[in-house]
């Protein structure tokens, strides 16, 4: 279908009701929005990376995530059955309808902040997709089987950089410590579980189960260079309920404005 038709005029409140009535749609949107929003953030690095080789590497990761997001959004739209395609879901939902965790919407900061976010998120996504391969839902299982290989690379890329920044120069170490501090408040939300997860049973992966293997990987990387994830002075959550930080509004405004300026147009 062409995005932007009458269906897309659905109010967010209605959409939220629909989503609640359709746990699989809601769950798929969580996975999709995490990938989409992080891809959008990483895309901001292009032409600004510390070295040309790194422009290429970050673009690869952004492209992988965008590919995952597209497959998942398409599937969410099909499952929902209301005629929304990947673009209708990406461009015509408002902030309150986005289901991503707060971590991925955080501004890029310097390269250390971005690498801290990458390490934490890619390690989480790796454990998630690794288990989702066994999902009772065949489409999710297939997306995960492809994505887990991509994410294994993302995780390693982040680990290489966190080691180098953590044990490079005095300046890079300070920045790496600050980077870990900056993203720490948004880590716990990744592992929150809720009714939706239990409702979905063998279709979904329980985020709470990921914490231990995730920590084993992340801690090993950090310990190698004498770093650790600090105790948080506060934690932030709410992304899964569509309660985001202010930054997401600007991210979406930029991402969506052209598409929304031409209702019904094809690109």
């Amino acid at each position: 279908m062409r995005s932007g038709n009458a269906n897309s005029g659905t109010r967010w409140a209605d959409a939220e009701l629909t989503a609640r009535a359709q746990p699989l749609v809601e769950y798929t949107l969580r996975l999709a929005d995490d990938a989409l929003v992080l891809s959008q953030r990483l895309g901001e690095w292009i032409t600004r990376a510390p070295e040309l080789e790194e422009d290429v590497a970050l673009a690869n990761i952004a492209l992988d995530l965008l590919g995952q997001a597209r497959a998942l959004l398409t599937y969410a739209g099909q499952t929902e059955g209301a005629g929304r395609d990947e673009d209708a879901l990406a461009y015509l939902r408002d902030d309150r309808e986005f289901r991503n965790v707060l971590l991925v919407e955080q501004p890029n900061g310097d390269f250390a902040v971005t690498m801290a976010r990458q390490l934490v998120f890619a390690a989480y996504q790796y454990e998630l997709y690794d288990r989702l391969r066994a999902s009772a839902d065949q489409t999710l299982a297939a997306v995960a089987a492809k994505a887990v290989k991509e994410v294994a690379y993302h995780r390693e890329h982040a680990a290489l950089w966190v080691r180098r920044l953590g044990d490079g120069t005095d300046e890079s170490r300070l920045r790496m410590v600050a980077g870990l501090d900056a993203i720490r408040p948004f880590v716990d939300e990744l592992f929150d579980t809720d009714d939706l997860i239990s409702q979905l049973g063998a279709v979904a992966v329980d985020p709470a189960d990921l914490r231990e293997p995730w920590a084993a990987y992340v801690d090993a990387v950090l310990i190698d260079v004498g770093l650790e994830l600090p105790d948080p002075d506060h934690t932030a959550r709410g992304g899964r309920l569509g309660l985001h930080g202010e930054a997401l509004g600007y991210l979406l405004a930029e991402m969506q404005h052209l598409h929304r300026s031409h209702p019904g147009a094809s690109w």
């Binding site: 080789e53 590497a57 180098r164």
Partner: peptide, 10 residues
Amino acid sequence: EMALRHARDV
């Protein structure tokens, strides 16, 4: 190690 990663990407 980084050379290998870069080679893969580039």
